[in-house]
Design a protein around this nucleic acid. Structure first.
Lengths: 266, 266
DNA sequence: AAGTGGTCTAGACCACTAT
DNA sequence: TAGTGGTCTAGACCACTTT
């Protein structure tokens, strides 16, 4: 199984091509990943030491370091100073569900539209005032949108916006009729960050009506609360949809498609 | 609220301490992050060039590079060859929900237990045979577990295991009565990877009964399908729970707590 | 032409671990 | 003591973008 004993060991893929487009550190990382996902290097086993790799592939220590860091960033190996580098075991808790997948789903079908259902001033009740950190009864904007895919209602979005006449940026909220605007968080640079939460829920009668569903059913709720750079709330809202519209998928472990060029996210 | 306007502009934190425990690249990254999350560097704005940073902080280019890469890995800046490095705008689609948070929830309260409800041989029906890639009618193991938190039923886990007498490892499945065993994917190194999916669902009558719920309600379903290094299915199963038991939360944007020591995941 | 980020070298010193 | 990973230097060359 291991080609070390097989004489003439050198695989073609194990040779660093210095004229290749992909950087050396990436080539080395791919070589090591290949050994791992073919089972040639099993979880728990120790990788060759960095000095070994320097000698074997005739690259500088820093380059080996980058390759190691790249695999470590992808959570498929772990380093232990003084002991060595080891292949990690697959861990269920390392799973992450990416909202990006949902976004890609949108963009792949260009037939997605955002319709403004309504927007009006409201006076903040206790719940809204608490969330937006404004005074009770203060003005806020209640905005409702419907996202349709291929003409069919798919996602219902409701939210409350802080009303601040001195800050006209949020006015552009009303003009958001494309997905890019929505997903780029209103397309402005005012937002410092936001808290998101995801949970299962009953769809309300309103949800069912707006989404044109045959009857009540369980659904997913994606809530969001955005802050500005003074850590003051800007908006609070949520998307609701049927469970078939928001089915998050991900993969853990060693995957052929895991190879990325850099430590950076996609 | 913000100490920027408080005069005495020179921050102590902006000086590289070469005797500090934290590495220089990390200190530099923290300095830049601080400028970003205080709003001193706004989304869309350009960071100082790498040569500028080299001169300003008197470190080598590779060290500046590491700091830049670290922030880029955290998705708060983006690099454009030939143009510069820029602060990113907050993007909703960059959100990720981590199962680790759920795992941590378990571990924080040590009062979590795994009870084996039942395990028996079954003959694979069409659905199971397809998922586990075995022949129709072939033997498989059906296993059910209940995870309790503080003595109260919280998560109901069902799954089918491929039965292979030559591979006794899966026998240890039956002995898994602690969470670590469950979350370390049966604690063995046989698993190459797995596909996970998360969706909202109705809880079945069985779910309601096992979880001792007052009546039917929506819930979350976390499905998993694990493969071995030959890409053959090992097990297929799912966790179900009420929506209150699985409420995934995350944060996007610039966050004080985002500072990590390395490009590697936690 | 000047500036930018991307890659790479060939060493060095350190803290830590195992023997 | 020898081996390991972690950090850092002071340059170099390249492809690319902007002026």
């Amino acid at each position: 199984m291991n080609q070390i004993k097989g004489g003439r060991a050198a695989k073609l893929t194990e040779i660093i091509d210095r004229d290749a487009e992909s950087p050396i550190y990436f080539q080395l990382a791919e070589i090591l990943r290949e050994k791992i996902l073919t089972g040639s290097l099993r979880p728990g086993e120790k990788l060759p030491s960095e000095t070994d790799l320097v000698d074997t592939y005739e690259v500088s220590p820093m380059t080996v370091r980058r390759a190691i860091n790249l695999l470590a960033a992808q959570d498929i190996i772990s380093t232990a100073p003084g002991r060595g580098t080891f292949v990690k075991e697959v861990q269920l808790e390392s799973a992450a569900f990416y909202l990006r997948d949902l976004h890609d789903l949108f963009n792949n079908t260009g037939a997605t539209q955002v319709k403004l259902i309504g927007a009006r001033f409201i006076n903040a009740d206790e719940r809204i005032a608490a969330k937006l950190q404004i005074r009770l009864g203060e003005r806020a904007i209640y905005i409702r949108r419907l996202l349709t895919v291929d003409g069919r209602p798919a996602y219902y979005h409701r939210g409350y916006l802080v009303y601040d006449p001195t800050r006209p940026v949020l006015e552009s909220e009303f003009e958001v009729t494309d997905l890019k605007g929505l997903f780029h968080t209103q397309g402005n640079a005012l937002i410092k960050g936001g808290d998101l939460n995801l949970e299962a829920t009953y769809l309300t009668a309103e949800d069912v009506s707006v989404l044109q569903l045959p009857g009540p059913m369980p659904g997913m709720l994606l809530g969001h609360l955005f802050y500005d750079f003074n850590n003051q709330p800007l908006s609070w809202g949520w998307f609701v949809c049927t469970s078939t519209q928001l089915r998050l998928q991900t993969r853990i472990g060693f995957d052929q498609a895991n190879g990325k060029r850099d430590e950076r996210p996609r």
